[in-house]
Structures are given as structure tokens and as C-alpha cells.
């Protein structure tokens, strides 16, 4: 579903992603862990086309995301191609980024109405269904400023799902939350994993959660996958020193 081929991402002289080859199968839930600065959030950001890549090609659903075929050759994509490709990808952010001038319901309806061209009524039904799924239907007419962090993040998940993406990206969605509301967000993601065949990529610091729901866990270090495997293998029996160091450091912190 998602394929990174020899992808590089540099900021000036600093290489954040280095010759990354990475595949995510359809319906797979992959968690990326790693120390800060290891490039894990960058992976999601370049997949959402929020950042251009410096080299390589990314494919989503068999089609090149960052490039387009022109006369048989791949050339860097233009804004139009990006927009077309983006609609198959949804993303949730660490700081929710709900639109403050819109209610929870309006936040969810914006994409379907403006991008997919759905009628208001249809968009509303779809959004209300999703808000019910994330347990936010009774707050649908509230502005984000009236919602707690956990509630805002649940609305943000509904907003992303309203576009019916094939791939969902979760970028540290619980990092900005108070400990007691983390569960309400992780439960929504658990539900998504259990009930839908979405392809998901998640960056998180919650090792317990990652272990519970992931099909595969990738440990990033220095812009590369240092080690990957099933949650059981990676957490119980890490092969690399850096993985072991990281996991023991994280264990101490939590």
C-alpha cells in the first residue's frame, strides 16, 4: 500500500532520512518508535506531502506520490498531482490542529464538502456517524476551544476519517494529552484497528499501546530503520544494542 524506495530527506546539510526502503502492506498497522531526531515524524510528514523529499520515490496504492509519469519518465509532482494523491491519506497531529472557527461537526464536514464535493446533508450524515464512532456526537456543535485535549483529538480523528482515506497517519497523537485522557484516544484507534481494514502508520512513545495493537514495530535510528519485527520480538527480544538501549531508557521513564 505504501512503499518508500531509497528515500532521502535533507534539511540543508543535515540528513534526516537516509536511503530509506520501507513497505507497509494493505490493512497493516505499523508503529514507528525511536529517539527524538531519528526521523520518525518526518516519515509521516513526507508521506502526507507536508514536506518535499530530497531523493527517491514514494508509492501509495501503486501510484507514485511524490512524482508523476510524464512521457514514460517520473518527474517531480506538481500541486495538482499532490492534491489528487493526498485524498487517499489522512493524518492526525500531536496538537490536533482543529480549525478553531468551526464546530466539531463543521471541522469534519469541511473536507467532504470542499474537496469531495458532497452535498451538505450527505457530509453531515457521514460526519455525525464518525463523531458517534469516536464518542463525540453530543459535543458536535461545540467549538474546539470548549473541548478537552482528548476530545479535540477524537474530533481530529473523525475529521481525517471523513475523507475516507486508505492510509491513516497518527503523529504522536497522545503526546500532548493529560495521562487520564490518553485512554479515550487510544481506544478509538483500537476500535479502528479492530473494525476497519485501514492501513495505519503511527508514531508513538506509548510502548504498551504500540505492543498491543501493532502488526509490526519499526525502531528508527539516525534516519534509518535500525530494527523491525513483530511487537513481541522487538520488545521482548531486541537484537540490536541501540534498540535495547532505547527500550530500557523508555522503560525507566514510564
Amino acid at each position: 500500500m505504501v512503499r518508500f524506495l531509497n528515500v532521502n530527506k535533507d534539511y540543508g546539510k543535515l540528513s534526516v532520512i537516509h536511503q530509506l526502503d520501507f513497505d507497509v502492506a494493505e490493512g497493516e498497522m505499523v508503529t514507528i518508535i525511536g529517539p527524538s531526531g531519528s526521523g520518525k515524524t518526518t516519515v509521516l510528514r513526507i508521506l502526507m506531502t507536508l514536506e518535499p523529499i530530497s531523493g527517491g520515490v514514494i508509492y501509495v496504492n501503486g501510484k507514485p506520490l511524490t512524482h508523476m509519469a510524464k512521457a514514460g519518465v517520473l518527474v517531480p509532482a506538481d500541486e495538482r498531482h499532490f492534491r489528487q494523491m493526498r485524498s487517499s491519506i489522512g493524518m492526525c497531529f500531536q496538537h490536533f490542529n482543529l480549525f478553531p472557527h468551526m464546530t466539531a461537526l463543521q471541522n469534519c464536514m469541511e473536507g467532504p464538502v470542499q474537496v469531495l464535493g458532497l452535498a451538505k446533508k450527505e457530509a453531515r450524515e457521514r460526519s455525525e456517524e464518525l463523531l458517534t464512532m469516536v464518542g463525540m456526537i453530543d459535543k458536535k456543535d461545540q467549538h474546539p476551544s470548549r473541548l478537552s485535549g482528548g476530545q479535540q483529538q477524537r474530533v481530529a480523528i473523525a475529521r481525517a476519517l471523513a475523507m475516507r482515506p486508505k492510509v491513516m497517519l497518527f503523529d504522536e497523537v497522545t503526546s500532548a494529552l493529560d495521562p487520564e485522557v490518553i485512554g479515550e484516544v487510544t481506544n478509538v484507534i483500537r476500535k479502528l484497528v479492530a473494525e476497519h481494514n485501514l492501513t495505519m502508520l503511527m508514531v508513538t512513545h506509548q510502548m504498551g499501546f504500540a505492543r498491543d495493537i501493532s502488526d509490526r514495530v519499526c525502531f528508527f535510528y539516525g534516519g534509518k530503520i535500525e530494527e523491525e519485527g513483530s511487537p513481541h520480538d522487538l520488545f521482548e527480544n531486541p537484537q540490536r544494542d541501540r534498540t535495547r538501549q532505547f527500550l530500557s531508557a523508555v522503560k525507566e521513564a514510564y
Binding site: R83, A160, M163
Partner: peptide, 12 residues
């Protein structure tokens, strides 16, 4: 974050 969230739902 507002620009990015708008981009993430594919707004032109």
C-alpha cells in the same frame, strides 16, 4: 499546524 491540517484534508 492550521495550514498543515488543511493540507492534510486535501483542501486546495
Amino acid at each position: 499546524g492550521q495550514w498543515e491540517a488543511a493540507t492534510a484534508i486535501s483542501l486546495s
